[in-house]
Amino acid sequence: MITVLAIDALEYTLVEKFDCNNLKQKYYGKTNISEFSEPRTMVLWSSFMTGKNMEKEILAKGDKDMWNTKLDIKDTFFDQFENPKIIDLPGFSYITDQHDQERKLLKEFFDAQSEEEKGQVRVDYNNLAFEHHRKIKEEFIDVLEADHDFILGYFSVADVIGHLNFGNRTMMKMIYKDLDEIAGSMKNQFIVLSDHGMEQIGIFGDHSNYGFWSTDFKDLGNPGITDFAKIIKEMR
Protein backbone atom coordinates (compact mmCIF):
# COMPACT_ATOMS: atom_id res chain seq x y z
CA MET A 1 0.00 0.00 0.00
CA ILE A 2 1.38 3.37 -1.01
CA THR A 3 0.15 6.47 0.79
CA VAL A 4 0.66 10.10 -0.03
CA LEU A 5 0.09 12.87 2.49
CA ALA A 6 -0.60 15.75 0.15
CA ILE A 7 -0.38 18.80 2.39
CA ASP A 8 -1.12 22.04 0.63
CA ALA A 9 1.30 24.89 1.43
CA LEU A 10 3.42 22.84 3.84
CA GLU A 11 6.38 25.12 4.35
CA TYR A 12 9.85 23.57 4.59
CA THR A 13 11.25 26.17 7.00
CA LEU A 14 8.39 25.71 9.44
CA VAL A 15 8.61 21.92 9.35
CA GLU A 16 12.18 22.43 10.52
CA LYS A 17 11.43 25.23 12.94
CA PHE A 18 8.60 23.38 14.65
CA ASP A 19 10.58 20.11 14.84
CA CYS A 20 7.97 18.11 12.91
CA ASN A 21 9.99 14.92 12.99
CA ASN A 22 7.22 12.68 11.70
CA LEU A 23 6.71 14.88 8.68
CA LYS A 24 10.46 14.91 8.03
CA GLN A 25 10.77 11.13 8.06
CA LYS A 26 14.25 9.94 7.07
CA TYR A 27 14.78 12.05 3.98
CA TYR A 28 13.23 15.42 3.27
CA GLY A 29 13.83 18.47 1.16
CA LYS A 30 12.42 21.07 -1.18
CA THR A 31 10.74 20.48 -4.52
CA ASN A 32 11.61 22.43 -7.60
CA ILE A 33 8.62 24.22 -9.11
CA SER A 34 10.57 26.86 -11.01
CA GLU A 35 9.20 25.63 -14.32
CA PHE A 36 5.86 27.19 -13.40
CA SER A 37 5.23 30.91 -13.76
CA GLU A 38 3.37 31.10 -10.42
CA PRO A 39 2.89 28.51 -7.66
CA ARG A 40 -0.81 27.92 -8.36
CA THR A 41 -2.49 25.12 -6.42
CA MET A 42 -4.60 23.78 -9.28
CA VAL A 43 -1.74 23.84 -11.76
CA LEU A 44 0.67 22.14 -9.38
CA TRP A 45 -1.53 19.27 -8.29
CA SER A 46 -2.69 18.64 -11.85
CA SER A 47 0.93 18.47 -12.92
CA PHE A 48 1.65 16.13 -10.04
CA MET A 49 -1.09 13.72 -11.06
CA THR A 50 -0.31 13.63 -14.74
CA GLY A 51 3.45 13.83 -14.54
CA LYS A 52 3.58 16.72 -16.97
CA ASN A 53 3.50 20.52 -16.85
CA MET A 54 -0.21 21.34 -17.02
CA GLU A 55 0.10 25.10 -16.56
CA LYS A 56 -1.02 26.16 -20.02
CA GLU A 57 -3.97 23.81 -20.06
CA ILE A 58 -5.25 24.75 -16.63
CA LEU A 59 -4.78 28.47 -17.02
CA ALA A 60 -6.64 28.39 -20.30
CA LYS A 61 -9.79 27.64 -18.32
CA GLY A 62 -9.71 31.00 -16.61
CA ASP A 63 -9.64 31.79 -12.89
CA LYS A 64 -13.17 30.66 -12.16
CA ASP A 65 -13.38 27.39 -14.02
CA MET A 66 -9.85 26.43 -13.06
CA TRP A 67 -11.18 25.43 -9.65
CA ASN A 68 -13.67 23.03 -11.21
CA THR A 69 -11.03 21.03 -13.01
CA LYS A 70 -11.69 17.33 -12.87
CA LEU A 71 -9.10 15.25 -14.65
CA ASP A 72 -9.94 11.85 -15.99
CA ILE A 73 -8.29 9.08 -14.00
CA LYS A 74 -6.88 7.72 -17.26
CA ASP A 75 -4.74 10.82 -17.58
CA THR A 76 -3.24 10.37 -14.11
CA PHE A 77 -0.84 7.87 -12.60
CA PHE A 78 -3.64 6.69 -10.30
CA ASP A 79 -4.81 4.61 -13.22
CA GLN A 80 -2.12 2.00 -12.71
CA PHE A 81 -3.55 1.09 -9.30
CA GLU A 82 -6.38 -1.36 -8.80
CA ASN A 83 -8.20 0.30 -5.95
CA PRO A 84 -6.93 3.85 -5.40
CA LYS A 85 -8.61 6.29 -3.03
CA ILE A 86 -8.00 10.01 -3.48
CA ILE A 87 -9.52 12.41 -0.95
CA ASP A 88 -10.29 16.02 -1.88
CA LEU A 89 -7.40 16.44 -4.31
CA PRO A 90 -7.57 19.65 -6.36
CA GLY A 91 -8.14 18.83 -9.99
CA PHE A 92 -9.43 15.34 -9.28
CA SER A 93 -11.72 14.81 -6.32
CA TYR A 94 -11.80 18.38 -5.05
CA ILE A 95 -14.74 19.09 -2.74
CA THR A 96 -15.68 22.20 -4.70
CA ASP A 97 -18.55 23.39 -2.48
CA GLN A 98 -16.31 23.59 0.56
CA HIS A 99 -13.48 25.37 -1.18
CA ASP A 100 -15.79 27.70 -3.09
CA GLN A 101 -17.19 28.76 0.28
CA GLU A 102 -13.67 29.41 1.54
CA ARG A 103 -12.85 31.64 -1.40
CA LYS A 104 -16.14 33.44 -0.94
CA LEU A 105 -15.27 34.30 2.66
CA LEU A 106 -11.78 35.26 1.58
CA LYS A 107 -13.27 37.82 -0.77
CA GLU A 108 -15.63 39.01 1.97
CA PHE A 109 -12.68 39.55 4.24
CA PHE A 110 -10.93 41.86 1.83
CA ASP A 111 -14.15 43.63 0.96
CA ALA A 112 -15.03 44.27 4.59
CA GLN A 113 -14.77 47.91 5.56
CA SER A 114 -14.29 47.87 9.32
CA GLU A 115 -11.77 46.07 11.50
CA GLU A 116 -14.68 44.58 13.39
CA GLU A 117 -16.23 43.14 10.26
CA LYS A 118 -12.89 41.77 9.11
CA GLY A 119 -12.43 40.16 12.49
CA GLN A 120 -15.75 38.41 12.31
CA VAL A 121 -15.23 37.18 8.75
CA ARG A 122 -11.83 35.86 9.70
CA VAL A 123 -13.38 33.90 12.56
CA ASP A 124 -15.98 32.40 10.23
CA TYR A 125 -13.32 31.63 7.61
CA ASN A 126 -11.09 29.91 10.15
CA ASN A 127 -13.94 27.88 11.63
CA LEU A 128 -14.93 26.70 8.18
CA ALA A 129 -11.38 25.59 7.43
CA PHE A 130 -10.87 23.82 10.76
CA GLU A 131 -14.17 22.01 10.54
CA HIS A 132 -13.30 20.70 7.11
CA HIS A 133 -9.91 19.62 8.40
CA ARG A 134 -11.54 17.58 11.16
CA LYS A 135 -13.79 15.88 8.59
CA ILE A 136 -10.92 15.10 6.27
CA LYS A 137 -8.85 13.70 9.14
CA GLU A 138 -11.66 11.38 10.12
CA GLU A 139 -12.23 10.20 6.59
CA PHE A 140 -8.54 9.67 6.08
CA ILE A 141 -8.21 7.53 9.22
CA ASP A 142 -11.15 5.38 8.09
CA VAL A 143 -9.74 4.98 4.60
CA LEU A 144 -6.40 3.84 6.00
CA GLU A 145 -8.15 0.84 7.54
CA ALA A 146 -9.76 -0.14 4.28
CA ASP A 147 -8.27 -2.19 1.50
CA HIS A 148 -6.65 0.13 -1.04
CA ASP A 149 -3.38 -0.16 -2.88
CA PHE A 150 -3.00 3.60 -3.15
CA ILE A 151 -4.31 6.30 -0.82
CA LEU A 152 -3.90 10.03 -1.11
CA GLY A 153 -5.13 12.32 1.65
CA TYR A 154 -5.18 15.99 0.74
CA PHE A 155 -4.99 18.45 3.64
CA SER A 156 -5.78 22.05 2.84
CA VAL A 157 -5.78 23.50 6.36
CA ALA A 158 -2.26 24.96 6.30
CA ASP A 159 -2.95 26.77 3.04
CA VAL A 160 -6.43 28.03 3.83
CA ILE A 161 -5.66 29.15 7.37
CA GLY A 162 -2.23 30.37 6.31
CA HIS A 163 -3.52 32.88 3.79
CA LEU A 164 -5.18 34.96 6.50
CA ASN A 165 -3.24 33.87 9.59
CA PHE A 166 0.32 32.97 8.64
CA GLY A 167 1.64 35.67 10.96
CA ASN A 168 -0.12 34.03 13.91
CA ARG A 169 2.67 31.77 14.99
CA THR A 170 0.69 30.02 17.68
CA MET A 171 -2.01 28.99 15.26
CA MET A 172 0.42 27.83 12.58
CA LYS A 173 2.51 25.91 15.08
CA MET A 174 -0.53 24.06 16.36
CA ILE A 175 -1.58 23.19 12.82
CA TYR A 176 1.87 21.89 11.96
CA LYS A 177 1.98 19.83 15.12
CA ASP A 178 -1.41 18.39 14.25
CA LEU A 179 -0.20 17.45 10.77
CA ASP A 180 2.91 15.97 12.33
CA GLU A 181 0.69 13.87 14.54
CA ILE A 182 -1.17 12.57 11.50
CA ALA A 183 2.15 11.63 9.93
CA GLY A 184 3.14 9.99 13.20
CA SER A 185 0.10 7.75 13.16
CA MET A 186 0.92 6.27 9.77
CA LYS A 187 1.70 2.57 10.00
CA ASN A 188 2.70 1.96 6.39
CA GLN A 189 5.16 3.62 4.07
CA PHE A 190 4.17 7.10 2.97
CA ILE A 191 5.34 10.14 1.06
CA VAL A 192 4.72 13.70 2.21
CA LEU A 193 4.38 16.24 -0.56
CA SER A 194 3.28 19.83 -0.78
CA ASP A 195 2.61 21.85 -3.90
CA HIS A 196 4.33 24.97 -2.57
CA GLY A 197 5.21 26.49 0.78
CA MET A 198 4.19 29.71 2.44
CA GLU A 199 5.84 33.02 3.21
CA GLN A 200 4.78 35.79 5.49
CA ILE A 201 3.34 39.14 4.53
CA GLY A 202 2.43 40.70 7.87
CA ILE A 203 -0.36 38.59 9.30
CA PHE A 204 -1.05 37.06 5.86
CA GLY A 205 0.55 34.27 3.86
CA ASP A 206 1.68 34.08 0.24
CA HIS A 207 2.80 30.98 -1.68
CA SER A 208 6.54 30.37 -1.70
CA ASN A 209 8.46 29.12 -4.70
CA TYR A 210 9.26 25.63 -3.56
CA GLY A 211 7.34 22.74 -2.07
CA PHE A 212 8.21 20.13 0.57
CA TRP A 213 8.79 16.40 0.17
CA SER A 214 9.79 13.56 2.48
CA THR A 215 10.21 9.77 2.32
CA ASP A 216 11.74 7.11 4.48
CA PHE A 217 13.31 5.14 1.63
CA LYS A 218 15.18 7.46 -0.70
CA ASP A 219 16.78 10.89 -0.84
CA LEU A 220 14.99 12.47 -3.77
CA GLY A 221 17.24 15.53 -3.91
CA ASN A 222 15.42 18.47 -5.44
CA PRO A 223 12.66 16.81 -7.48
CA GLY A 224 10.14 18.57 -9.66
CA ILE A 225 6.52 18.03 -8.78
CA THR A 226 6.05 16.27 -12.09
CA ASP A 227 8.66 13.65 -11.13
CA PHE A 228 6.44 12.07 -8.54
CA ALA A 229 4.26 10.22 -11.02
CA LYS A 230 7.36 8.28 -12.04
CA ILE A 231 8.72 7.95 -8.50
CA ILE A 232 5.46 6.43 -7.29
CA LYS A 233 5.25 4.15 -10.33
CA GLU A 234 8.66 2.77 -9.41
CA MET A 235 7.59 2.18 -5.82
CA ARG A 236 5.03 -0.43 -6.86
Binding site: H163, I201, G202, F204, D206, H207
Partner: peptide
Protein backbone atom coordinates in the same frame (compact mmCIF):
# COMPACT_ATOMS: atom_id res chain seq x y z
CA UNK B 1 -0.21 51.70 7.97
CA UNK B 2 1.78 48.51 7.68
CA UNK B 3 -1.17 46.18 7.82
CA UNK B 4 -2.93 48.15 5.11
CA UNK B 5 0.12 47.84 2.91
CA UNK B 6 0.31 44.14 3.67
CA UNK B 7 -3.33 43.71 2.81
CA UNK B 8 -2.95 45.36 -0.57
CA UNK B 9 0.08 43.27 -1.32
CA UNK B 10 -1.60 40.03 -0.38
CA UNK B 11 -4.72 40.90 -2.32
CA UNK B 12 -2.57 41.32 -5.38
CA UNK B 13 -0.89 37.99 -4.79
CA UNK B 14 -4.12 36.14 -4.17
CA UNK B 15 -5.47 37.49 -7.43
CA UNK B 16 -2.40 36.31 -9.29
CA UNK B 17 -2.80 32.87 -7.75
CA UNK B 18 -6.45 32.69 -8.75
CA UNK B 19 -8.02 32.89 -5.29
CA UNK B 20 -9.61 36.30 -5.83
CA UNK B 21 -10.75 37.83 -9.05
Amino acid sequence: VFSEEDEEKVKGRLRALGYLD
